[in-house]
Design a protein around this nucleic acid. Sequence first.
DNA 1: CTGAAAGCGCTAACAA
DNA 2: TTGTTAGCGCTTTCAG
Lengths: 347, 347
Amino acid sequence: MADTSHRPENRYGNRPTMKDVAARAGVGLKTVSRVVNGEPGVTPDTERRVQESIDALGFRRNDSARVLRKGRTASIGLVLEDLADPFYGPLNRAVEEVARAHGALLINGSSAEDPEREQELVLALCARRVDGLIVIPAGDDHRYLEPEIKAGVATVFVDRPAGRIDADVILSDSFGGARSGAAHLIAHGHRRIGFVGDQPRIHTAIERLRGYRTAMADAGLAIHDDWVALGTTAPDRVRDAVAGMLAGPEPVTAILTGNNRVTVTAVRVLAAYHHPVALVGFDDIELADLLEPGVTVIAQDAATLGRTAAERLFQRLDGAADAPSRVVLPTRLIARGSGEIPPSAER
Amino acid sequence: MADTSHRPENRYGNRPTMKDVAARAGVGLKTVSRVVNGEPGVTPDTERRVQESIDALGFRRNDSARVLRKGRTASIGLVLEDLADPFYGPLNRAVEEVARAHGALLINGSSAEDPEREQELVLALCARRVDGLIVIPAGDDHRYLEPEIKAGVATVFVDRPAGRIDADVILSDSFGGARSGAAHLIAHGHRRIGFVGDQPRIHTAIERLRGYRTAMADAGLAIHDDWVALGTTAPDRVRDAVAGMLAGPEPVTAILTGNNRVTVTAVRVLAAYHHPVALVGFDDIELADLLEPGVTVIAQDAATLGRTAAERLFQRLDGAADAPSRVVLPTRLIARGSGEIPPSAER
DNA sequence: CTGAAAGCGCTAACAA
DNA sequence: TTGTTAGCGCTTTCAG
């Protein structure tokens, strides 16, 4: 145990404070503060002496104290569903880049699609006094955020709208995207089309289902009960859902999947199936173009979703006080083969 | 503009403090603190009155102030290369889960493979007084961290070792993995094998190259200069590198790629090539099993990497003072077809 | 069981 | 140009 410490013990291990630096440099506390923060009004000579003390002591400003005094933490929180889901990677990164451009750090966490965990996380972030919050909601009731928002925590929702409160939101056009996906399959001759989506609690799941229903109705096609399956994205659940649609009395000839997790599993199931079945997936997935057939998808732009949300957040932080807005980004259908497979001959 | 505020203005928008709660409940400040923190020694009746005030005022404890006083922030920092890279998603998530289990929040950021940005981020995290740091290094000199570590910031490196300082590190067996990948190709009859890797500044790139060289040497095979290409993972660079190896005077019949980003581009190039070329990729990639041929990979377990690192970090935070350790996790070769393609007939 | 006082490390406001 | 004083909102200490 080396005994080099001649500095007073303090709670951060053994960190020098501005006071220590000031003492060593033989100047006042405020002078150190000025040097550390690059404020004007310090002789080059004094500055040099202070800087020397800083280096010698290994001083690093304690931002916790600074935050307490200044009232802004220069950090924002991002709550998403799953940090490991590739869909959220680009979104996360885009938010980070905007935050960085504004000198803010990013604190983030996964709700794991659990409303309670979402709330717990969000409130923990509020206790840390993040300046703003970007939330991909898991729950559908965000009234718990009202006092926070009233207290000045800027909040933007992405990917799904807030529940029961009025707030900024950035969405992809789930309804339109799903509708065009289903219409695409119909245009290629399909009449019996299945929809495998996410849990009905999730807004996008419902919207995509609605898009599918609308396209079917527009084409005058009835939907058999067995053709719609909402639920978790667990591979087993998806596997069963797809198998069910393929095996029933009115087997589908095409499937529309509700998100990237579902698509990946559906691709696996269909690859092993004895008959060609058409597939359109919501969300683009890596390597989709190289599969045989390529996977036709309705792509959303996750990075733009994140960037737009973060920019909106910083507008709010910079004082924008207009009414909450709702931005809906378009989706894009990318035909790669799987969505253009014609209905297979009757069994 | 509603004028409901009869509370004193303070800097966080308009947030009530413990003092406000105390005043309203007609109790002392410390009593509020006790209730908020669930400390014993408060009459049920008093507690009820305080709780009522808390709810009415929408009070939320200011953790910044708490942190200043207590010295621990209950947050850890994670610096990785790119939040959008699917390889880091599971790692990130695993770290988050461990942090959560320990009641800590996760602050994270991307170094974008830029040593300066890494340092900037790390020091910003230190200024926030994160309790600990998990770093996937971009740079190769971490002496800038010495004062921080000495001051008590626990630090664990993952995926790549620290440069010029002694610290805990969790790695995958890059050397062994690459060696087995190359040996696998050799066992399948290849003699001219190329290696396309990441930038030579990156430790794993060098280790994997070394694994490749060792396997070749073990088999008594010479390596032509054109067969090794290190550089960025930009698709264009990889495309050119692969094309070069395929076109030279001594064209390769098989390729070993150095990470997931490189593999994805190599798969694209080879899919468009007129000749079958064998491929083994470092890192598993989603849907690799469904391509034709399936992509043979050397898989590392990113989640375990992250979990192990986080657990080590919390051991340190809980006082573990043993010498820095180095953990090397095994990799696993998954044969799916592309690595078992025999050398193609001479042109 | 309860509360008053001191102080965490910093910055704002003012004085010298 | 420099330093002093008074907090930021909380927890710790110690006295009622």
